[in-house]
């Protein structure tokens, strides 16, 4: 399945799989898709989430207590794929669980499950040689993060290695809701545009409809993570419904259909 954004801005939703449990995660993901998510990032919990703020740290700890593993997340992906043919699915993980499984095995299982791509948050493009070879061999899109502190040469390098979309990080820092979109965000997206035709998704700290609408002025898609995870945390027993409602409210001020954003040449956004 191509990673396609059906409207502007497209919506990428991140969830920490296994919080509170995998069955509920599946319901949450399907609710997010029904409410308009174009791409789902299936977060694999990790013992040392150095790039994450307190919300995702807590969710990861809860998910790990359930014994959630990379293997289980891939199984979940296959289940979601059965119910959602045109949604993009990305595995979002730290490097060590993937290394432990084996790069080749990970790609093979992911492809078979119907996963479209992966984002390995602590694997910089400079160290990604083996990863890129394996991902390409299995027709998986490698998504990388571009930070506001990266000089142009690095942005180009990231853009050249990326598939699917490029994830522009809106500010220096870790995941977590912020007060307003930093000026960093606009500048970064403007700089990245020069280096790629791939859709640019803006993430970190976006949690309100106003921020979402503002991001849509310059980004092709918006990533919402901690806000979703926090919604799950705060609505025990009705997680999926709460996430569905949150997504609808978030996108209420935006969301016109658009012709942007397919990863593969010639594929048609379907309605």
């Amino acid at each position: 399945m191509p990673l396609t954004f059906y409207k502007k801005p497209g919506l990428v939703v991140y969830v920490t799989c296994g919080d509170p449990n995998l069955a509920t995660t599946r319901e949450i993901v399907l609710a997010a898709i029904a409410a308009g998510a174009d791409v789902i990032e299936l977060g694999v919990p990790f013992s040392d989430p150095v790039a994450d703020g307190p919300v995702i740290q807590r969710a990861s700890e809860r998910a790990l207590k359930q014994g959630t593993s990379l293997g289980q997340v891939l199984t979940l992906a296959a289940e979601v794929r059965q119910h959602a043919q045109s949604t993009g699915l990305i595995v979002f993980s730290y490097l060590n669980p993937i290394l432990r499984m084996g790069m080749e095995k990970f790609c093979k299982v992911a492809r078979a499950a119907g996963v479209d791509g992966a984002l390995v948050i602590d694997l910089p493009v400079e160290e990604a040689g083996e990863y890129l070879r394996a991902m390409r061999a299995y027709d998986l899109a490698p998504v990388f993060l571009a930070a506001p502190t990266s000089p142009d040469e690095r942005l180009k390098r990231i853009a050249d290695a990326s598939g699917g979309f490029v994830y522009a990080v809106s500010r220096t820092g870790v995941t977590g809701a912020g007060q307003q979109l930093a000026e960093d965000a606009r500048k970064l997206v403007r700089r990245l545009r020069r280096f790629t035709k791939l859709p640019l998704a803006l993430g970190f700290g976006i949690s309100t409809a106003e921020q979402f609408a503002e991001a849509s002025e310059f980004a092709d898609a918006v990533v919402v993570g901690s806000a979703i995870v926090e919604t799950v945390e705060r609505n025990r027993g009705r997680e999926a419904a709460a996430v569905g409602q949150f997504v609808r409210e978030l996108t209420a001020l935006s969301g016109q259909p658009s012709a942007i954003g397919t990863m593969r040449e010639g594929s048609i956004p379907g309605f």
Binding site: D48, R100, M101
Partner: peptide, 18 residues
Amino acid sequence: GVLQGTFSYVLQDSGGQI
């Protein structure tokens, strides 16, 4: 394994959790 930006010997479980 990889922990905190370094590739070295790491005490970890079978799922790659530290």
